[in-house]
């Protein structure tokens, strides 16, 4: 992947973006056990496959979610967080 589509600014070279890691849903800190929280903080779904990831377009300051296959490094879609339905 050398190009990435920012949902706001369109397709841009990858050098303009910063990878923000896998998006993981946080457990409820009020109710979850220490173990569940530690798992959320430290562990990752490391196996290859389609993942939701945070990406940041630097020049415009836009965070968004990219659905990317980490095996083939191909992005199937990108959208602003929470706007998955409209994407």
């Amino acid at each position: 992947m050398k190009l990435l589509q920012c949902p706001v600014n369109g397709t841009r070279p990858i050098s303009e973006f910063t990878y923000g890691g896998e998006y993981r849903e946080a457990p409820d800190p009020q109710t979850c056990s220490d173990k569940v929280w530690a798992d959320y903080v430290h562990n990752r779904h490391g196996a290859p496959g389609l993942k939701k990831e945070w990406w940041y377009h630097g020049p415009s300051g836009t965070w968004f979610i990219a659905e990317r296959n980490t095996l083939t490094d191909s992005v199937s879609r990108t959208y602003l967080f929470g706007q998955e339905k409209d994407a």
């Binding site: 896998e22 798992d39 430290h42 562990n43 990752r44 779904h45 490391g46 196996a47 290859p48 980490t70």
Partner: peptide, 17 residues
């Protein structure tokens, strides 16, 4: 390939590739 193998036994680790 570690995450692929740990997935086979259902263990999660902090490892990323």
């Amino acid at each position: 390939f570690t995450p692929r193998i740990t997935e086979m036994v259902g263990i999660e680790t902090p490892i990323v590739i």
